[in-house]
Write a protein that binds this DNA or RNA. Structure first.
Length: 419
RNA sequence: GGAGAGAUGGCUGAGCGGUUGAAAGCACCGGUCUUGAAAACCGGCAACGGGGCAACUCGUUCGUGAGUUCGAAUCUCACUCUCUCCGCCA
């Protein structure tokens, strides 16, 4: 959600920023609505003030048993005006909110300009592509060959874009999530939460999924929605709060399933478990003071990377261009892991800074002296567990069809070194 | 699912339809005292918005939304949420 004062005072910059994100120039429309709203408000408030005065006078007269009819009639007249002005103010306020709540965040000035993911910029990489003396398989081949990944059974239960894992691979998924949570809570300074997987509309508004992207989500009826990421509940933990400055920074993490309708992805990544309606993820969220957020994004990225380093899997980090960023982000790094079976880098984490964009939607501030200031929010995957599983199956596969267990996971995997 | 109780400022908690934006206490901030701290005492302390260069001023807000009234935290209705008891259940 944007600061209307900023738009008023920097309309050109604002329009330029929206253009980078593929939006039409709209500041003039916003400013016009805002102007009418404020003018209405001023007139309305003067009348309200008059009414309040008269009402007090009426009270005084009545308490002295004196006649107040003249003043009562006056107020009656005012009421008509008040009602129509209130109505107008309401209409303009709704128009304004409806526009503002659908506009994406302004990109940070360090974000490269671009149309889509082909314009993302290389930031850094770690490790090298592993060498195989056989042709590495896709993760689904590895899993299906040993009967531990099964798409057909999942289709029977739930349709396309679901999977069932079994036995050792289920256990491996569990080991991965435990490893990630331990790392983030014991070394990286995050506090673990268990959160609801079903949330209300206001909650999704707070982080920016609604009102614009309802099509990407699943509903559970009763006004509840399935979370597409733990970013939603974790960030909204502080919705409508005025935090004490010494509570910051807040760093939280949670392991949750994520549910996405993948509405716009028909025909994309249909093979394998790369793009599912349901997957698990360990999420990282930070709530910080504004001056900390740039550093915090780098820190968060490092925390996410630490998982892949420990797993010893080659990856690269990309800075997303203006056209590829998510709605609420002002800057995003994607970590892309190398998949030898597919011979491609694939996203395994996305770390975003949202500035005060979500804080405005959630109404989350902190007290700094006598001022209440919007916090900055950040979120990142630390990491997508399903895709980490894929990365392990492809990077650690052996010629005989078995899979080696990464060293850091062995203790989480009953001390076994092979699948 | 059945019965009942409730929702007030960061927290606890008062509040006859008319100086109640809201008592009191706690917390917090500033000061006096003290070598320092604590205690005690004194003072300050809601949010959001409009207007104004500013001092300041006006409006809105006591779960949410409607209504009654000249005037609503206080009355009416609907909704939401919380708690207690009973039933059911992981």
């Amino acid at each position: 959600m944007h600061n209307i004062n900023y738009i008023r005072e920097n309309s050109t910059e604002f329009d330029n920023a929206m253009k980078l994100r593929g939006e039409d120039s709209i500041s003039s429309k916003i400013i016009e609505i805002d102007k009418i709203k404020r003018e209405t408000q001023t007139v309305l408030q003067n009348i309200l003030s008059e009414r309040n005065k008269l009402s007090k006078e009426i009270g005084n007269l009545k308490s002295k048993n004196m006649d107040a009819n003249e003043k009562i009639n006056k107020v009656e007249e005012l009421k008509l005006k008040i009602n129509s002005l209130k109505e107008l103010e309401n209409i303009k306020d709704n128009e304004l909110n409806s526009i503002l709540s659908r506009l994406p965040n302004i990109p940070h000035n360090s974000v490269p300009y671009g149309k889509d993911d082909s314009d993302n910029k290389f930031y850094r990489e770690w490790g090298t592509k592993p060498k195989f003396n056989f042709k590495p398989k896709h993760h689904y081949e590895v899993g299906e060959n040993i009967g531990l990944i099964n798409f057909a059974t999942a289709t029977k239960l739930s349709g396309s874009r679901f999977v069932t894992l079994k036995n050792q691979i289920s256990k491996l998924e569990r080991s991965i999530s435990n490893f990630m949570l331990d790392k983030h809570t014991e070394e990286n300074g995050y506090v673990e939460y268990s959160v609801p997987f079903l949330v209300k509309e206001e909650t999704l508004f707070g982080t920016g999924q609604l009102p614009k992207f309802g099509d990407d989500l699943f509903t559970a009826g009763d006004d509840l929605w399935l979370i597409p990421t733990a970013e939603v509940p974790l960030t909204n933990l502080v919705r409508n709060e005025i935090l004490n400055i010494n509570q910051l920074p807040i760093r939280s993490t949670s392991f949750t399933p994520c549910f996405r309708s993948e509405a716009g992805a028909a025909g994309k990544d249909t093979r394998g478990m790369l793009r599912q309606h349901q997957f698990t993820k360990v999420e990282l969220v930070s709530i910080v003071e504004p001056h900390q957020s740039e550093n915090e994004l780098e820190r968060m990225l490092t925390c996410a990377e630490s998982i892949l380093k420990d797993l010893n899997i080659h990856y690269r980090v990309m800075t997303l261009c203006t056209g590829d960023m998510g709605f609420s982000a002002n800057k995003t790094y994607d970590i892309e892991v190398w998949l030898p079976g597919e011979q491609k880098y694939r996203e395994i984490s996305s770390c975003s800074s949202c500035g005060d964009f979500q804080a405005r939607r959630m109404n989350t501030k902190y007290k700094n002296g006598d001022k209440n200031i919007f916090v900055h929010t950040l979120n990142g995957s630390g990491l997508a567990v399903g895709r980490t599983l894929i990365a392990i199956l492809e990077n650690y596969q052996m010629e005989d069809g078995n899979v080696e267990i990464p060293e850091v996971l062995v203790k989480y995997y009953n001390n076994k070194t092979l699948l």
